[in-house]
């Protein structure tokens, strides 16, 4: 019985990883700039990830305007596209664990200045990725698992004033390029003769020719959201705040040409809790200028939609 591995060009999506503080303004790749900076759990369908943040007690200044704290975050994402975390050969996942320091400032409660809140933060993360790769030139074990370790350091600022939420972040670190490439379905077929074949196994894997190991990258992210229903929400606390958000993402992988991934989204908050975004979706154009030279060179083919849901735990 002869086994012949064949390739099908079925694109299943990319396995990705989110980092840093939890945010519901995540794009399909798990990146964000506006942070919840509190206890929260979030889910992202774009990268099939689950993230949680646990914040320590605030260190409050004497005049009640500075609130400093530590926070921890964990994230787990399937690295095998739309399939399960578990494969025949073991668990396939991307994960991260990190810690943050937050310096939050708010307007004094009395006086004539407008109300505002903003916070600086820094965040460090240790990353682990385990991806499935394939190399058809190998004599055996053409599909195999590979683990990669990385790190990420981020610094940014998030805040709000009136109806506006905003955030920007610069982060750098070492990670694979799994976020930016697509998996292919590799089928193993048993050939029993000239007229019978049997599909034995199908696996999603990255081609070793395009998968790069851990590489240095720099990203600049910015989020802005405008509360469309803030006035209605203020007059009727049962009306949830609805936000229109613009997300800007740029990535310098190995300091080559920047990859621009802009997105636009709608997000909804819990009634009476406009700061706690509960769910939303965004439409994202991956690699706007096609610097990665994807085969699908038309702009429309690189558009993706992802949904996020989050639960702020007050």
């Amino acid at each position: 019985m002869r086994k012949v591995p064949l390739l099908f060009v079925l694109v299943l999506g990319t396995g990705t990883i989110t980092y840093a503080q939890t945010s519901v303004f995540q794009d399909g790749k798990g990146e964000s700039a506006y942070k919840l900076l509190g206890n929260a759990v979030s889910v992202n369908t774009g990268d099939k990830s689950l993230a949680a943040t646990l914040k320590g007690k605030d260190e409050v200044s004497q005049n009640n305007t500075h609130f400093n704290s530590w926070a921890m975050n964990v994230n787990l994402a399937a690295s095998d596209g739309s399939s399960a975390l578990k494969s025949d050969d073991g668990f396939l996942f991307n994960g991260s664990i990190g810690a943050s320091r937050i310096w939050k400032r708010v307007a004094p409660a009395v006086g004539n200045t407008d109300a505002w809140t903003n916070a600086w933060y820094i965040n460090g993360n240790f990353l682990v990725e385990r991806n499935k790769l394939y190399d058809l030139s190998l004599a055996k074990d053409k599909v195999f698992d590979q683990g990669n370790a990385g790190w990420k350091f981020a610094a940014g600022r998030s805040g709000y004033s009136g109806d506006h939420l905003w955030g920007y972040e610069l982060n750098l670190g070492q990670a694979t390029n799994a976020k930016d490439i697509k998996q292919t379905t590799v089928s193993t077929i048993q050939s029993g003769g000239t007229d019978s074949i049997k599909l034995e196994k199908q696996q999603s894997a990255y081609a070793t020719s395009v998968f790069q190991g851990t590489q240095f990258n720099v990203q600049l992210n910015a989020d802005y959201a405008w509360a469309l229903t803030a006035k209605k929400a203020a007059n009727n606390a049962d009306v949830p705040a609805l936000y229109l958000a613009g997300l800007f993402r740029s990535k310098f992988f190995q300091l080559s040409k920047p990859q621009i991934n802009p997105a636009i989204g709608l997000y909804i908050a819990n009634p009476g809790k406009p700061q706690s975004i509960s769910a939303g979706f965004n439409v994202q154009e991956s690699d706007l200028f096609n610097v990665l030279h994807a085969k699908d060179s038309s702009v429309g083919k690189r558009i993706g939609i992802s949904f996020t849901a989050g639960f702020s735990i007050d």
Partner: peptide, 8 residues
């Protein structure tokens, strides 16, 4: 009270 617009 300083909080985001719409907070009950």
């Amino acid at each position: 009270v300083v909080a985001f617009s719409g907070t009950k």
